Structure formats: structure tokens, C-alpha cells
Simulated scan of single mutants.
Amino acid sequence: MYTIIDYIIAFVLSLVVSIAITPFTIKFAKKFGFVDKPDYRKVHTELMPRIGGLSILIGATAGLLYLNKLIPLLWPVLLGGAVIIIIGIFDDKYTLSAKVKFLGQIVAASIVVAFDFNIDFITLPFMEERIYLGPFSYVIGVFWIVAITNAINLIDGLDGLASGVSVIAMTSIMSLAALNGHFIVVSLTVILIGSTIGFMFFNFHPAKIFMGDTGALFLGYCISIISLMGLYKSVTIFSLVVPIIILAVPIFDTLFAIIRRILNKQKISAPDKSHLHHRLITMGFSHRETVLTIYAISAFFGLAAIIFTRSTLWGSIAVITVVLILIQVIAELVGLIGSHKPLLNAFKKMRANMNQSYK
């Protein structure tokens, strides 16, 4: 549909527009009260503009207008995205309840899957038998979109964290889409990566603006859609694993948060300071070190997903095994050190000695 030159132009256009518009977004946020107030679970100590998602949206829109042949194919996705953006804007201004945001996400997801953006059947390995999902395909589609949207939103706790993890995930998806000839997915990821990187010039620590729910929900929604499109219509059991590996950091951070809140008899939507990034900061990592560490983990999972798709059956099983073990080790190690004071103090002392030796 488009040439490599078209993709480069779309990327640069999205990047430049996002960079150019963000200073105006900062002024707009401050003038009209789209600000994030500090509290006990946040790391910033002053009011911060938090509607940076508008910059990502406008940058991506510029790229999409250049790749305009996609628009007729994607109008249900654009309509659902409009619902997500409206929810995000209102939340950044008025702080909506979790129920209202959840309902809005279901509406947006339902619009998309109602127009056949879903998985019709699954092919079992070792045989050609197909399992047709029927009405469950719509349920699975809505669940996936809502789950990934919230997963990206929940990791948006440090400067540049959600935006960087999203760029890494989208780059992995784009690489796989290019290898498999899914050029609509390539087109979408190119413009989203460009606009998000443009925003990151202002969002990386120390941030001048937060993406807010406008950005986090929008990016989560877009990633959920493009990962579904990469699987479009028919998948094998093993290919279902690919987007889960790519998005392992936000998915498992969210899953552990849900389990933790259930065990502590809290509401699932109740905020806390036990996410992966909170734990790493508690262990003595600086803001920037924490973000870069999670970037590295995300990049590892993205690379693992690419290796997974190019491997033999037994190689794929080996990759899954390594990934699951690594997730468990990270969770156990971070949780153990973060909650055990003697270990935590010893770890901080070790890090202090290492930092001193580097100096």
C-alpha cells in the first residue's frame, strides 16, 4: 500500500508535529487546570500539567492524514478512539471514578469488535482442527482491549515510563508485522511511535508534562488494537502468546496488582505503591535508573517475542519457559527485597558502595 519512503515521512511528520505541539499543550493544561496534584503515592511534589496525550494524538493524526488510505479501513477504531480520548480528557480535568472509566472503555472496545475486529477461530497445534469461538470472539476482543488499555494506564507512574514501554512494545509489534506482511499494522505503529517519541522529549525525567489518562488510555487502546490486528481473524494457540510476551511488563504488573489487592481485601481499582516501579525506587534505584531498568526488561521481552515467532515448536516452548521463569524471578526478587527490611537495607548499602566506587 505504501513504500518505505512513505513510512519514513509519516514517522518524521508525527514526530515533528508532536514535538512542536507539546509546548502549546503545556500552556493549555496550565491555563485550563489540567494538572496532576501530588499525593502520598506519587513521586512528584508540585502541580504538573497532565494532558500530554493530546500531543501524542495530534502527532499521530498528522501521520494518519498523510497515510490517509487507512482512514476508510479504520473508522470503527477511530470512533472507539474518540470515546477513549473523551474519557481521558474528562479524567485529566475532573478525575473520574474507576467505574465511569471502565464503562467508557467497554463502550469503545464494543464499537471496535462489533465491526469485526476480533479473532474468529483458533487452530490447535499438531493438528488442523479449528475451534470457532462464535459469540465468545466478541467477549475475548472486548476483554483484551480493556485489559491492555488499563495495563498501560497502570504503569504510568514515573516520568517517561508508560511512553517508553509503549514505544518498545510498538516497535516489537511493528517488527513482527513487517516480517509477516501486515502493513496496516506497520503503518499504524510507525505514526504512533513517531508521535510518542516526540512527546517523550518533554516527558522523560525530569518531565515537563505528564501524558495523563488522555495519553495512557489512548496508547493502551491503540496497542491493544494493533496487537489484535496482528493476529487478525485466525490464530494458533502459540501465536496468542506473542502479544502477551511483548506486553509482559504491563500485563504482569497489572495481574500482580489485582492479586495483591484481592489478598489484601482491597478494591481492585484501589491505588497503591507496590507496582514494579515503586518497588525499584524503594530498593534505592533513582527515578531515571528505575525507568531505564524497566525499559531494558521490556526490550528483552520484545526480543523474546520476535525469537519466539522465528523458532521451531520446541524452541518456542523453551522461550515461553524462560520468559515465565524470568517473570517469576523478577517478581519474587523485587517483592522479597522491597518488603524485607534487613535485605532492603543491605541492598541499598550495596548500591551505595557501587555508586561510590564509580565516582
Rank of each mutant, 00 (worst) to 15 (best):
L247H: 03
V167I: 14
I4A: 08
G164Q: 03
T321Y: 12
D116G: 12
I281C: 07
E332V: 12
V190K: 04
A20K: 13
A248H: 03
S55N: 08
I330H: 13
L313Q: 13
S357Q: 13
K265M: 10
F308I: 05
R41N: 13
I294A: 01
V139S: 15
P49F: 00
I87C: 03
M350I: 14
K42Y: 12
V107A: 15
I51N: 12
F202D: 02
R288P: 04
A270M: 13
V190H: 03
E46H: 12
R260I: 07
I237L: 15
I5S: 10
L324Y: 05
A207T: 12
V77T: 11
W75K: 09
L64V: 05
G302P: 13
I168P: 01
F308K: 03
N203G: 02
Q266K: 15
V77G: 01
I197Q: 10
V113T: 11
I193P: 06
L188E: 08
K265N: 14
T293D: 07
G230I: 04
F204Y: 15
G302N: 06
K27Y: 02
L54P: 00
L158E: 15
V322Q: 08
F143C: 02
G52I: 06
A346F: 05
I9Q: 08
T95L: 11
N203C: 05
T61V: 15
S195K: 01
T3D: 14
I152G: 02
F210N: 04
F285T: 06
I131Q: 06
G198K: 01
V329T: 09
F347V: 06
A108P: 00
M1A: 11
E46F: 03
A109P: 10
K273Y: 08
H287T: 04
A305D: 14
G134M: 07
T214W: 00
T290N: 00
F126R: 00
F32L: 14
A216Y: 01
I51V: 15
F256S: 05
D120L: 08
M200I: 06
